[in-house]
Design a protein around this nucleic acid. Sequence first.
DNA 1: GGCATATAGTTAGTTATGCAACTAATTTCA
DNA 2: TGAAATTAGTTGCATAACTAACTATATGCC
Lengths: 146, 146
Amino acid sequence: MPNNQFKRGELYSVINGMASTAVARRLQKNFRMAGLEITIEQWSVLYHLWKEDCLSQQELCNRTFRDKPSITRLIDNLEKQKLVRRIPSKSDRRINLVCLTDAAQALQSQTIDLANQTMNEALIGVNKEDIEVVKQVFQRVYDNLT
Amino acid sequence: MPNNQFKRGELYSVINGMASTAVARRLQKNFRMAGLEITIEQWSVLYHLWKEDCLSQQELCNRTFRDKPSITRLIDNLEKQKLVRRIPSKSDRRINLVCLTDAAQALQSQTIDLANQTMNEALIGVNKEDIEVVKQVFQRVYDNLT
DNA sequence: GGCATATAGTTAGTTATGCAACTAATTTCA
DNA sequence: TGAAATTAGTTGCATAACTAACTATATGCC
């Protein structure tokens, strides 16, 4: 087996198991230490709604790279916590618009600060050019496979 | 809010949601299409055992970046599928050595080929220097947070 | 108009993850 | 030697992921 094939296997395990979960775990831990009951998955949905409120579930699928059942249940849980509401679209009755509650609006600055602190900590010693390379590689990989 | 903070938030969502899951999904799909019943998580455990057989569960935790309960249950499922066996260590009775069965040995070349094909497809148009940058950034992020 | 097709969302079933609390075996050290 | 601390692994609980199959609404086309 050619040597460079195993190198790609190693890259695979790096991508899937290491840095991303380390960041996710740390951010989750920081939420918990701050007394915030939300998961990072829930936060990632709120993050997109803070940028643009009242998106359809399908649009949240596209923006968070999740499938429809995953979004359905994330919205279920966010609704239980009274952070979002499903509002039926008037123009298309198949569509639910997912809208933030006041409680979710209030969470924004607190969690964004924690996320930024976490990313700052994660990216110590990483220069901006390398971050751009990572983003470009990931976009390319995503485009190659979808 | 300074602009560069949101940029880091975007990087966070890129790392967690996009390229890694795209690779994982594609590899899982390729396993399924080849009639292989294993999950990518199970494969990632086997991958380390193919490199070095009969590791302790703790060592598999370290190498796959998972916690102990996750490894316990992955090994449970791999044992049900008769791909590994737990063998109590003679020198330390707390330790289970996780060893490959013949069936798992036979899976190696087939799945490694699929993984390599998948990575080749994922990495079309990505040059080697950029892959090295990604690996270094991820290692750095991991080291920063652990 | 009406049937085929596509789209939005839900539900069921299996696997996986993280945390906390637990048992059992080993090591440390007073 | 023997109690305290550490290490390896398991179990219970909640959340989340993917697939497949499902309902309901909307669109396309004859």
